[in-house]
Design a protein around this nucleic acid. Structure first.
Lengths: 124, 124
DNA sequence: CTTTCTGTTATACTGTAACTATAACAGATA
DNA sequence: TATCTGTTATAGTTACAGTATAACAGAAAG
């Protein structure tokens, strides 16, 4: 698993970490049952503090993407809840699409963009 | 223009304000050339500090949604730059779709969601 | 010209969140 | 026993959000 943190980003490190792990799962580079590196190990690899990794893992656990196994550590385990996910996504999409809409990005443009992104994601 | 601020949200007030104004524009409830309330007036209406409104307006100016006219104040003025907007949107969509994808939300589901949101937006 | 609106800028303070730094504890594994 | 794991606690720094005044300059209206 390759993690790239942008230390100049205005996005918090633990959020970048969470996002990238979610993308890894969606892209099927991480699979159900895979173990994530230990918090100490990943922290050292990236060059950040253990607690920052721990926070990312905690968020992923709370959001239902991993479960914590005392023996193995953090394990990819998706808790699917389509209904809630749809509502969440709609809220997130609403602002992003508004910005595009003001810039004359058409519905067709967005559909094409969605298709492009789905090309990267093999999770089924 | 109706603004609803959630003071319990983890989203900054000036970001909520910015987002709602962008949505208002996309939904054609605010049009090119419309003036926004003065920073002092809107701050009083919402019950927040002038500088928080000022920050939202500054962000909107920097992002090319309004321009500041000394005589009229903040005026809706879209600076369309489709290419940059497409790349920005793709980055924003990538994480949102990854989350959905893990929850077995299909490409068709997302397309339907996009259509729903576009129903709200009349800006052309 | 004066008053009053506008945006803009500067300064200072509080509160909170992000991040780091140690440290310690308990369970699992070799 | 030694070493790995997650978990928790505490403390410190840094940065940002938000508030509070204050002042300045340009524009508009009296």
């Amino acid at each position: 698993m390759i993690i790239e943190i942008d230390f100049n980003s205005d996005e918090a490190i633990y959020i970048q970490l969470r996002n990238q792990i979610i993308v890894e799962i969606a892209a099927a580079r991480l699979h159900e049952g895979d173990t994530l590196p230990s918090v100490r190990q990943l922290a050292e690899t990236i060059g950040i503090n253990m607690h920052t990794v721990n926070k990312a893992y905690s968020v992923l656990k709370q959001e239902g993407f991993v479960s914590i196994d005392r023996r193995k550590g953090a394990v990819v385990a998706i808790d699917p809840n389509k209904v809630i996910a749809m509502e969440e996504m709609k809220d997130e999409l609403r602002v992003a699409l508004a910005k595009g809409c003001c810039r004359n990005i058409s519905k067709a443009d967005v559909h094409a963009l969605v298709d492009e992104i789905f090309e990267e994601y093999q999770y089924q």
